[in-house]
Design a protein around this nucleic acid. Sequence first.
DNA 1: CGGGTAGCGTGAGGCGGATCACAGCCGGGA
DNA 2: TCCCGGCTGTGATCCGCCTCACGCTACCCG
Lengths: 236, 236
Amino acid sequence: MERRAEQHQWTRALRRLPLFAPLAEEELTRLAPAVRSRTAPRGSVIFREGEEVAAIHFLVSGRVKVAMMTADGREQTLTILGPGDFFPHLGCLAGGAYPATTTALEDCALLLVDLAALADLLRRNGDLALAMLLKMAQRLEDLQQRVRELAERDLRVRVARALLHLADRHGRPGAGGLQLDLRLTHQELASLTGTARESISRTLGAFRREGLVESAEGSLVIRDRAALQAAADGLR
Amino acid sequence: MERRAEQHQWTRALRRLPLFAPLAEEELTRLAPAVRSRTAPRGSVIFREGEEVAAIHFLVSGRVKVAMMTADGREQTLTILGPGDFFPHLGCLAGGAYPATTTALEDCALLLVDLAALADLLRRNGDLALAMLLKMAQRLEDLQQRVRELAERDLRVRVARALLHLADRHGRPGAGGLQLDLRLTHQELASLTGTARESISRTLGAFRREGLVESAEGSLVIRDRAALQAAADGLR
DNA sequence: CGGGTAGCGTGAGGCGGATCACAGCCGGGA
DNA sequence: TCCCGGCTGTGATCCGCCTCACGCTACCCG
């Protein structure tokens, strides 16, 4: 009884995810027993690289960062994901170990789906498989851009690219430009751009002096997108 | 008549790709009219970044490199693909522009499939969609490793990682270690590791002097995999 | 209140690797 | 045969950024 109420709740929660919204009621109720819910407060680790894969996580609300360790013990951020995204990537459907550590950047609500149940559902439902395929493709594109970004030699270019990338995916139009509300520390921006904390501090300082960005209360506003784009293209 | 013979040939060619092998005969013959074949000699460009997407390319034999330009005009290689892989990634199913330039590293045989036909097939055939999903996931994993690799500061580590990565995906067991037969120039290795040609020359020279690798005739042999792995882990 | 911690800004200095320059080598074509 | 263009090795130089070191502010918690 109680169990059924719970399950009903999961189906409602699943419906709110664009990926699952088009599914038939019957599919959802069949999936429900394989779903759990979880929250993760800002700053907490959701799972660590190397732990055994327990479920595919669908992000209902909040943002997370996905990161790995480099040989010299620094943290390299791979990407930042938002509502509607899922992780780890579906290569983990077969089990194994999480390929990267995932941390909540904001308070997060998650739905965890069993591996086997999801695999079955994907096999039965071509539309869903196709939808997830496209979502994966988006991630792939994203990573390709990150590879190019990291290959950039000039630090100004790297940082400018990172900011634009973040703004595109996680920004909100606000007063006087795009606003970035993730409260990323300089350390986290450094981990994203593959550089040192102090270098971020300096580069951001320069951008601020030049009027490209403005930072207040840990959130960041892009004041002059065109100029930032120029910086990202290596013009000075 | 001739047309039918051609199509029969395509279905046979498609069968040889692991992705398409499990398909029903009927599916294949339905797909056949949407398939063309193409070869690309070593060194030739298959398509360029920015050109309009004409088809999804399935690599039957040979290897290709996928690369983008950086802000300062250097070429950054994203990945090297082999038989059974396809490109561009499926985000391009919706059309648009190629996200990266693809060049043949060896003489290549390709099968080109129309976007719309492939999308239809994927929608109808969940198993195929799932199989391609897993292939994409593999690529994603690959790119994550590349991001970590590029974030590495020490050049020795970056190069060692790149060599191991290449060996895993494209190496052959040979006399006295894994053999890499792609005849990559130092310039191409530099583009892969995001560094300068001269630095590759020096680093590879060091590896050779230390007995980790051996290069002959442009092909490369990994003599001491354990030691190379140690170098990749930052031990000296 | 005061100490402890996390994050930010900035200076000084050293170093790894990018860059420039050049020489030797090979293969291919006239 | 001789050239010429592409690839490789290596030396010399130079500079961007990493590193180290420190002071400052804010905030939390006892």
